[in-house]
Design a protein around this nucleic acid. Structure first.
Length: 574
DNA sequence: GCCGTTTTCGGCCCGACTGTTTTCAGTCG
């Protein structure tokens, strides 16, 4: 069993216990354990065998025993019993905003409702308001949230989609008759929401395609095939989005890769370009219209070159003008992960992070960064154990001590200071003035109207000590709408006051989104791409933030944390 | 559930907001 699968079991146990009304701390212990497992960088199996699991914070005797059960038999008794007792669809119901364990249980026990669809029907029929403690407003809110949930049910946030695609990739790779596998489609273009998980396999022998498709469908995450062709199959999946596999011979690979990567509009534009130049381009190949000769191609670059175009990175293939730019040789020198020299927004165990400052720094050094800013939460964010002024200053003392250790790495003192509901900041100016890097973010009062919430952020931008506005719209992909902020106005103000906007790279956020990042670029506002990591593993999520920047056509010069340390410090001290 | 250089039991997580209520329960970050 892979680490993620084991973590998943514990998350599910926590959800089910929550429904049962179990004690809060027990539920939290399971969630913590799940998070700890998901964050391990070695296989659980290995650590278990070596007796090293008990060293992992959050894993105790009971949970380790359950991990043992899972490794031995693929299941554990508690999980199995809970699943038999409680319909799984109830946890989906509980994911609706406003519907926690108590209300879900009430609805289940009083009305026998177990699915979102039944709940929708009951709410529309006015049955929910009749329950004790419920009313018309809650009922309406449920109807609204259900319709929103249904609308986006078939689209998966990029991070989750990519995890699943990689698991399927691994599965296919083990097949003897498969020569190579690539994840393609929306995921290869790094689209923030994914309509379909697409994979492309190269078969050693064209006659084996059908057999490979059959074997693919045996994957436990996949259901019935919804559609099938000689070399393609689409199936429903456990995760709500369709999954598609295409199996092609080697000589067809580059063309099918180009076609399946899309976007549809980009490929159509390429077809038109090809036609005008005497080629016929489709997913099977590119053939001269004059002599029926197939174009000699051994990469995607070759195809673009034959069409007189610069190579277009998958992230740009949205028909937003990239083909014209490629024809003129004017595509940007896109930002790459390797251009990033440090992460400017991370949390440690001083507030709600899981790792120590040293561990985060160690990981950042291993990634080849030359700096890292420690930006724990501020006083008001009690749930995250936000740092009081005294603890913040103590932390900075510790960081200064730590910095004596290296010549080639620098830890910036920092803070993620809350923008409070009235627009003031959660630390006084004289504290902020002593900090290398100040990120100001909103963590409360999400429901304020556009005017109020925009004015709050504007006030933060106008504060001389603030360097970066963190996750500027507050959205959680697929979970929470952005707050009502007027982003255009924020961008204009940032331009006036020389402030930096964050691309929060957490795949749950991707905030700012690519559209606004593009607007920021056009307005001359630099961005900082930060992971907001709460444990060292999640420093790896930088790649998601980079993908947003690439999709917005950003070059290294648009990004604050591509600067070498001395330049960065000069900018921050200005 | 986990955790412990004071503790093997008793902490661990707190406050705002909302909607339902006549003084509070449930949800959320």
């Amino acid at each position: 069993m892979r680490n993620m699968e084991i973590a998943w079991v514990f998350y599910e146990i926590a959800d089910l216990l929550e429904f049962k009304g179990e004690e809060f701390f027990k539920i939290r212990a399971y969630r913590r354990a799940a998070r700890a497992i998901a964050g391990l960088d070695r296989p659980v199996k290995e650590l278990y065998a070596g007796g090293a699991l008990k060293e992992v914070p959050g894993l105790g005797k009971n949970i380790i025993a359950k991990i043992g059960e899972l490794l031995d038999s693929g299941e554990c008794r508690l999980h199995k019993e809970l699943k038999e007792e409680i319909p799984a669809s109830l946890t989906e119901m509980m994911s609706l905003p406003g519907l926690g364990p108590k209300r879900a249980r009430l609805i289940y026990e009083q009305l026998g409702i177990t699915t979102v669809t039944e709940l929708d029907k009951a709410a529309r029929a006015g049955k929910i308001r009749e329950l004790p403690g419920m009313g018309a407003k809650i009922e309406q809110e449920l109807v609204r949230n259900i319709s929103r949930m249904k609308k986006q049910a078939r689209r998966l946030p990029l991070g989750a989609a990519r995890e699943l695609a990689l698991a399927l990739h691994e599965y296919l790779e083990q097949m003897v008759k498969v020569e190579a596998v690539t994840v393609t489609g929306d995921i290869r273009r790094w689209a923030e929401l994914v309509d379909s998980i697409d994979l492309l396999a190269v078969v050693r022998n064209p006659d084996d395609a059908a057999e490979i498709l059959d074997a693919f469908l045996l994957h436990p995450g996949l259901g019935e095939a919804t559609w099938r062709d000689k070399d393609r199959v689409q199936a429903v999946s456990r995760w709500g989005v369709p999954v598609e596999l295409i199996a092609v011979p080697r000589e067809q690979y580059w063309f099918t890769l180009l076609w399946s990567t899309g976007s549809e509009q980009h490929f159509r534009r390429l077809q038109m370009t090809a036609w005008r130049q005497g080629w016929r381009l489709d997913r099977f190949g590119m053939v001269s219209r004059r002599d029926r000769q197939t174009a000699p191609v051994s990469s995607e670059e070759d195809i673009y070159r034959l069409l007189g175009l610069q190579y277009v990175a998958p992230e740009l293939r949205e028909n937003y003008g990239e083909i014209n730019a490629a024809a003129r040789g004017e595509l940007p020198r896109l930002l790459e992960l390797a251009d990033i020299r440090g992460d400017l927004h991370v949390h440690t165990d001083w507030s709600d992070g899981a790792c120590s400052i040293e561990e985060m720094v160690q990981q950042a050094r291993e990634k080849g960064y030359s700096y890292l800013a420690i930006t724990d939460h501020s006083t008001s964010l009690k749930i995250a154990r936000g740092l009081s002024r005294e603890r913040l200053l103590a932390q900075h003392e510790k960081i200064r001590e730590l910095n004596k250790k290296w010549e080639d790495f620098y830890v910036l003192t920092g803070v993620e200071v809350d923008i409070l509901a009235d627009g003031s900041l959660d630390h006084p100016d004289e504290v902020l003035a002593r900090v290398d890097l100040v990120i100001a973010s909103i963590h409360s009062g999400f429901k304020q109207d556009k005017d109020r919430i925009t004015r709050r952020i504007l006030a933060a931008i106008e504060n001389d000590h603030v360097d970066i506005i963190g996750h500027p719209t507050g959205r959680l992909l697929g979970h929470r709408e952005p707050y009502a902020v007027d982003v255009e106005e924020i961008i204009e103000a940032a331009a006036r006051h020389n402030k930096v906007l964050e691309i929060n790279a957490s795949p749950d956020r991707l905030d700012l989104s690519e559209f606004y990042v593009q607007l920021a670029r056009e307005s001359g506002v630099p961005v900082a791409i930060n992971t907001d990591a709460h444990d060292r593993r999640r420093l790896d999520e930088m790649v998601y933030g980079v993908s947003v920047a690439r999709r917005a056509w950003l070059e290294p010069s648009h990004v604050l944390n591509t600067l070498p340390l001395p330049d960065l410090l000069r900018v921050l001290r200005k």
